[in-house]
């Protein structure tokens, strides 16, 4: 592998429950971050629901991944958790409903970030 850090962005587009996409995306994030790449995660569309505070998925026997994102940011050096502002507005989700660690940015700015990426991994 090349020495320089590759800019990689996971794009989370699906709601956290009902499909396995988020869970397996997180598994990939954990593995990728252990290889010291420059990794960021963007939440767009229904993906923004993954970051809402106060979730209790133990009721459906699923881990609470909102905790995992905090660990990814703090311990696994995922550089940014971006949330698209328009996706929040379309769904009536307020910024204060989300984990504090996320960065809410407008669609146009997210598009610029996406342009800088070497790799995009949509989930």
């Amino acid at each position: 592998m090349k020495d320089q850090k590759a800019k990689i962005m996971f794009v989370c587009r699906t709601a956290p429950y009902g499909t396995i996409y988020e869970q397996e995306a997180i598994e990939a994030m954990i593995m990728f971050s252990s290889y010291e790449q420059d990794i960021s995660v963007a939440f767009i569309g229904d993906g923004v629901f993954s970051l809402k505070k106060g979730q209790d998925p133990s009721l459906i026997n699923i881990k609470n991944f909102t905790q995992t994102y905090l660990v990814l940011k703090d311990d696994f050096e995922i550089s940014h958790l971006y949330v698209e502002k328009e996706s929040l507005e379309e769904r009536g989700v307020r910024e204060e409903d989300l984990l504090a660690e996320v960065e809410v940015i407008p669609r146009a700015e997210l598009r610029n970030k996406i342009d800088e990426m070497k790799v995009l991994l949509p989930f």
Binding site: M1, K2, A6, I8, A28, Y35, K118, V119, L121, P122
Partner: peptide
């Protein structure tokens, strides 16, 4: 094989298509 192979594909390719 493991997810490391996906990372390798991501880095070694000019384009990763999903």
């Amino acid at each position: 094989s493991g997810l490391g192979q996906l990372l390798e594909l991501s880095i070694e390719s000019d384009r990763l298509i999903t």
